[in-house]
Design a protein around this nucleic acid. Structure first.
Lengths: 146, 146
DNA sequence: CAAATACTCTACTATGTTTGTAGAGTATCC
DNA sequence: GGATACTCTACAAACATAGTAGAGTATTTG
C-alpha cells in the first residue's frame, strides 16, 4: 500500500513547477536537477501529466514545461491520480467487473472508506499550498541541488 | 496504492473466524472453502496473523485456528498492518532512514496525512462490526461456497 | 499404542510491476 | 541552418506478489 516513485517524484515535480508558475516554461534539465530524477525518467512523468492536461510542453529552444493553470486550481489528488491511477485501495470498489461475492462482502465497505479518506486528504491540498509550504521550509529560496 | 491479496484475503479470513468465535478452532480446509483461497496460501496468511498474536493454532485432530481474543477487541487496522506492514504510504514517513531532503519536503506532509487517514478509518472498524455486517448481508447464514 | 488428523516448515517458481535506460527523431527559436 | 530541447519506441534489470510442492511434526481419539 505504497505510493510508487511516479507519484512521489511527480508531486515534487509539480511543486517545482508551481514555484516557477508564471515565469515561462521550465526545461527538463532544470526540473531534473531540482527533483533528482534522470531526464529520461522525468519524461515519463511529464508525458503522463501532459496527457492528463495538468502541464503543457513548449518545444524548441527556450522551451520546457509549465502548469496549464493556476497552482491553487490543481490539487494533490489531481497529480497523484494522474500518475498512479484511481485512488482505490482495491479494484472491486471501482471496477464494473465485480467479484462474485460482492453482495455479501463486508470487507469491501472498508476498502471503499479507505479510498474516500485518501481522496478527502488529497483533494484538500493544492499545489499553491504545497509550494508555499516548501518556500517556508527553504526560507524563500529555490533549491537547485547542483 | 493497492492492498495486496494478503490484506484482502486476510481480512476475509478474520471475519470468518470472528463469525465462528467461541465455537472452538476452525480448520484450514473450512476457512479455505469459505474464503476461496488455497490451503497452502492460506497457511502463509494464518502464520503471519499468528506471529502477530491475532490468532492461535491448535494442532492435531480437531485442531484449527481461532481468534486469540474477542472480535470487538480486534480492529481492521490490526489485521491489515499484520499482513501488509505499516500503514504508511511512503517509507520516509516511518523510517529512521530519512531522505536527504526531508527537512524541506512539502510532499512528505501529504503522505503523512494520508497514512493517518487510513489508520483512522481502519482502527475504527472492529471484526465484531464486520462480522455483524456480514451476517446481515447473508441473512444470518454462514456461507460455505462448497 | 497407532492411525488419522491437521498444522508446520523450507524451498522453489512463475508472473507482473516498477523503475528505469538507450538512442534516434522532431519541432521551434534566433 | 544550427542549436536547443521536447518526443517516441523499445528494451531490460530488479523487485514484489502470488502462489505451489512435498515432506515433517504434534495431538487427538479409539
Amino acid at each position: 500500500m505504497k505510493v510508487s516513485t511516479k507519484g512521489r517524484y511527480g508531486l515534487r515535480v509539480m511543486i517545482e513547477l508551481a514555484l516557477r508558475y508564471g515565469s515561462g516554461p521550465v526545461m527538463m534539465d532544470t526540473i531534473s536537477n531540482c527533483v533528482g530524477v534522470s531526464r529520461k525518467y522525468l519524461y515519463n512523468l511529464l508525458t503522463t501529466l501532459k496527457t492528463s492536461g495538468l502541464v503543457r510542453a513548449v518545444r524548441g529552444a527556450s522551451g520546457g514545461f509549465e502548469l496549464t493553470t493556476d497552482p491553487n486550481r490543481i490539487t494533490a489528488s489531481d497529480v497523484v491520480q494522474s500518475l498512479e491511477g484511481h485512488l482505490t485501495i482495491v479494484d472491486c470498489v471501482h471496477d464494473g467487473v465485480t467479484c462474485p461475492r460482492i453482495d455479501h462482502c463486508a470487507s469491501r465497505e472498508v476498502w471503499q472508506k479507505m479510498g474516500e479518506a485518501l481522496e478527502e486528504v488529497l483533494s484538500d491540498v493544492t499545489l499553491a499550498h504545497l509550494a508555499q509550504r516548501q518556500e517556508q521550509k527553504n526560507g524563500g529560496q529555490l533549491m537547485y541541488y547542483i
